[in-house]
Structure formats: C-alpha cells, structure tokens
C-alpha cells in the first residue's frame, strides 16, 4: 500500500487539489481518497476539492457515489474535475460539475454570476464557488462575500470580500466605494484602508493582484482591457 504515491493531495484556496493515479482500482477509489482526506487536518480541508483523475473512466454513478461520500464524511463537494477521458467529463457534466482536460487557474468563460439584490448585513455570508458574484447593495461591516471569480459590489464594500477563492489570480473586486475590512484575492490578502480616512460618496475602485500584491486602483482610469491582454499573452507584458 503506497497510497502516498498514488494519491497526491495539495492545498488550494478554498479546499484541496487531489490527484488520483490510474493505478488505483475503481472499487477502492472512494475508500482510499476518503482515508487520505481524513489524514488532512479538518482545519485545512476547506469545503471543496478539485479532483484530478488522469485517464480514468468514471461513469456518473461512480462520480455521484464519490460526491455523496465526500459530502457525508467531510461536508465537502467536488468543485472541479480534471479528467482526460471524455466519458468522465461527460459524467461530470451530467452532475453539473465543472470539468476540464487540464487544470487551469484562468477564469471560466461559462462561469455563472450570482446576483444578490439587496444589502448584506452583518453576519450574512454570500458565496458563489462557480463564478462571479454581484451585490446590488452594500456589503456591511461584519458581512462577507466570496466568489471563485470576480466580486462586484454596486454599493459600499465595508465587509470582507474574497475574489478568486479557488486560486484565480486574475480575479478582481470592484466596488463603488471601497472601505473593505479585508480583501482577499487567490490566497493573497490585504487590509484595505483605515476607516479614519474614509470619504463619503462613490469612487468606483477595483482591487487586483499585481506582482503578488493586492493593489486598489481607480476603476474609471483603470483599463480592464489591459488585464485581458496580459491574460491572453500569458503575462508577457509584466
């Protein structure tokens, strides 16, 4: 039993990245992976996993039973499936799990945007692990918002915002009035600004990652197109 070699676990933002070798038989797959996750401390497990299965063929029943056990034992869910087999990806599609032949941190053009049509008050937490989140109101102090893609707040952001929760470093946080307690993008975090020099009124701003640091820029002057160019050219300009 050298499960260490055949199952590789890495941490990623929001959960675990688990790579399963083809040497593991499909009947023991569930047990072995669960056992492996159990060895990871509960405090760093997170809530979702990205499962990489190489060329393994899995039908939707196998995938569903995996998903169910994962949920029952750890309360986690499969966030993304990386599989080279068309059959496996087809099964994932059936179960509405995002899948891709290779892992990329880039944004998913088909990502859903969840829209929240009110102000988030203290204690409320809204998240979208499958795309962007749009808040049509404020995010009050003590409230939290999180998305695997972008976070857009059409109001004042006072609370905590997480963009690129699963590791997308191109994700941004946009707000009409940026007063965030804390900003997090793809595992990097920043305290926005001290509440002392808060100004009233709306100054749309965007927070993004630049050279591993979160910077906040004026949204009007900032050219989002530039970011698109950087992304498609693999960051040549930086």
């Amino acid at each position: 039993m050298n499960s260490r070699k055949s199952i590789l676990v890495r941490g990623c933002t929001g959960g675990l990245f688990i790579t399963v070798d083809d040497s593991i038989g499909s009947e023991e797959l569930n047990d072995r992976v669960m056992e492996r996750i159990r060895r990871v401390g509960p405090e760093i497990r997170g809530e979702s996993i990205i499962l990489e299965v190489d060329k393994r063929a899995m039908d939707s029943d196998a995938l569903q039973s995996f998903q169910m056990r994962l949920n029952q034992e750890f309360g986690m869910s499969v966030q993304q499936l990386i599989a080279k087999s068309d059959e496996t990806r087809e099964a994932a599609k059936e179960l509405r799990i995002r899948s891709a032949p290779v892992f990329t941190t880039g944004r998913d053009p088909q990502a859903d945007t969840v829209s929240v049509p009110y102000t988030l008050r203290s204690g409320e937490f809204k998240r979208n692990p499958r795309g962007n989140i749009l808040i049509l109101g404020d995010v009050n102090p003590g409230a939290e918002v999180s998305a695997s893609g972008d976070v857009i707040v059409m109001g004042t952001l006072w609370g905590v915002a997480t963009a690129g929760a699963l590791g997308d470093e191109t994700a941004v946080v946009i707000s009409l009035n940026m007063q965030a307690t804390q900003l997090r993008i793809a595992g990097h975090y920043a305290y926005a600004r001290s509440p002392k020099n808060s100004e009233r009124g709306l100054h749309p701003e965007v927070a993004l990652l630049e050279n591993g640091e979160i910077v906040v820029r004026n949204f009007i002057e900032f050219n989002l197109l530039e970011r698109e160019v950087k992304k498609s050219w693999g960051g040549l300009s930086s």
């Binding site: 008050r121 203290s122 204690g123 409320e124 009050n140 102090p141 003590g142």
Partner: peptide, 10 residues
C-alpha cells in the same frame, strides 16, 4: 453596537 444592530435588523 452598530455591528450588532445591523445583524439584528437583518
């Protein structure tokens, strides 16, 4: 107090 009031209003 404002933080808790906000929670209660919610």
């Amino acid at each position: 107090s404002v933080r808790d009031a906000d929670r209660v209003i919610g």
